[in-house]
């Protein structure tokens, strides 16, 4: 690892100030960033820990029945929360217990790994990503592999999840990394169904609109018969070809619908 200064502000205002330094980098739980630093794939001048900020901790239910999760909440704390079962189940499947004890929801969403689980939940739920500066709708937030609408130095302070009538996250695990080879989050709201797919596309998480239309008309696995996604643009690597991932998207979506219904 290249060396860096370490700062651990106690308030959001101090964190925002610290992030204005040249080459400053926010540190959530570090479960992706620290391995990245070890590989010398990043060389921040200062690492700003977000773990000591009280106003970014805690999980509660909001006025409109949405689940509000502080940006520094760990996967373990989301897994243990009540109020949005499919989301807690998703959090409980990330990595392993030690990773869940450190990794945070804000860190995961800021990183936007194309195979991470949380982006699928945020996009399918129509979540709102709240930062120190503004609120960003999930539909406007994800901008491709490892790319988001966050500006330089912007910090995710809270994520608000509307709770669907029924929902389920189905994850086809890549057994060595425990990331999703393909993961599908299906969320049925009063006004329609949202389907978000992670792990599959080179563009990162995406909404599968054909499946959303079919499921909004008939929330049953059979409604997906015959629907396909184009293999072009899917991730092809040693774990699975583009065609394999495209095929899995339909299979895993069906499983998610069956489990949710």
């Amino acid at each position: 690892m290249y060396n860096f200064e370490f700062e651990k502000p106690g308030t959001l205002a101090d964190a925002v100030a610290a992030m204005s330094a040249d080459e400053a980098q926010a540190l959530g739980g570090g479960q992706t960033l620290i391995p990245t630093l070890k590989q010398r794939l990043a060389s921040p001048s200062v690492l700003v820990s977000l773990s000591g900020i009280g106003e970014m901790q805690g999980i509660c239910m909001g006025d409109q029945g949405e689940m509000c999760i502080g940006g520094s909440s760990t996967h373990a704390s989301v897994a243990a929360a009540s109020g949005y079962r499919a989301l807690s189940a998703l959090a409980g499947q990330i990595g392993d217990p030690a990773v869940r004890a450190r990794g945070t929801i804000g860190g995961s969403l800021a990183n936007n790994d194309p195979s991470a689980c949380y982006p699928a939940a945020a996009l399918a739920s129509g979540a709102t990503i709240k930062t120190n500066a503004r609120e960003i709708a999930a539909d406007d937030y994800f901008e491709g592999m490892f790319a988001t609408a966050l500006d330089e130095g912007e910090i995710i302070t809270e994520v608000r999840f509307p709770v669907p009538e029924i929902a389920h996250y189905e994850k086809f695990v890549q057994p060595a990394s425990r990331f999703a080879l393909v993961g599908v989050f299906v969320a049925k709201f009063k006004d329609g169904v949202r389907v978000a797919v992670t792990g599959a596309s080179e563009e990162g998480v995406f909404r599968w609109s054909e499946a959303e239309a079919a499921l909004s008309a008939n929330f049953a696995a059979e409604a997906l018969d015959g629907l396909t996604v184009d293999a072009e643009g899917m991730i092809g690597d040693l774990h699975g070809s583009k065609e394999y991932r495209a095929h899995l998207v339909n299979v895993i979506t069906k499983r998610a619908v069956k489990a949710a219904a």
Binding site: G30, Q31, I34, S49, D96, A98, V99, A101, R102
Partner: peptide, 21 residues
């Protein structure tokens, strides 16, 4: 996981946590 220790009672991978944290 060979480096797992408990930090404030919770199991973490000590190779993936900064000492300063």
């Amino acid at each position: 996981g060979a480096c797992v220790v408990h930090v404030n009672g919770v199991a973490v991978k000590s190779c993936t946590m900064l000492a300063a944290e």
